[in-house]
Amino acid sequence: MRLLVLGTIRRRGVTHGYGVHQDLTAWRAETWTNIKPGSIYHAMDKLAAQGLIRAEDSGDPVKRGPARTEYTLTPDGEAEFKTLLESALKSNEFQQMAAGIAFMETLSRTQVIALLEERLAAQEASAVFLRTLPTESQPSDPSKHPELVGMWAGYMEHAVTATRRLLQSLHDGKYTFADDVE
């Protein structure tokens, strides 16, 4: 949630809470993350209280109705965004990785490749480990159930394949990254 909200504000530069909500809804973020539309404003309040975003009255004297609050990233918010993004791109947790992919182009191509190679090494080690776990045809406990072990190993092998495919796309020059723009 923090990465998505910070990244959306960063992408827009200056935005109202409704703008963040509109972007995340338009991106259908609720289908690839655990974000709930009602939690966006709560997250923004927390980020403002932590000094990661700055909230200011829009000062629009023509607008009728209540004043709107505009948000921008603070320097601490920019640093937190980068930290969260780097962590997400190395994560084996699907929803974190999905949020990382959403904003990966804000980093350099070289940096993203390095983070994904780190992720891949961890995934490959996990896949090997999972294939060595003992199983029993009549499992004495769930950790030895062949279906459970097989499901986790299969999940990790699929994650390895997906990470390799993404890395190949990046090596092939796909997408435009921060260091690709002149």
Rank of each mutant, 00 (worst) to 15 (best):
D76I: 00
D180L: 02
H171Q: 14
E118Q: 13
F94P: 00
P37S: 11
M97A: 14
A178V: 01
P142Y: 10
Q168I: 00
Q123F: 09
R64Y: 10
D45T: 14
E105S: 14
S143W: 12
T15L: 09
S87H: 10
T135M: 09
H42M: 10
T25M: 11
S91P: 00
Y18D: 15
T69D: 02
M151F: 15
G17M: 04
K36W: 10
L89W: 00
G65E: 01
A114L: 09
D141T: 09
E124I: 09
S91E: 01
W27M: 12
T161E: 15
T69Y: 05
V14A: 14
P37G: 11
P61V: 06
A29H: 02
A43Y: 07
V112T: 12
E182C: 04
L116H: 06
A114E: 14
D45L: 13
E182P: 15
H21G: 06
I101G: 08
F177E: 01
L107P: 02
E93V: 08
F129E: 14
E182F: 09
S169F: 03
I40N: 07
Y175Q: 07
V128M: 04
R119I: 01
Q22M: 08
A79M: 07
E86F: 04
S140A: 15
L116E: 07
A99W: 00
G65H: 05
A153L: 02
I101T: 12
I9V: 15
R54Q: 12
R109Q: 02
L133C: 07
H158Q: 15
E80G: 06
R54G: 05
A121Q: 13
W152S: 08
L130I: 05
G38M: 07
S91M: 00
E78R: 14
D141W: 12
Y71L: 06
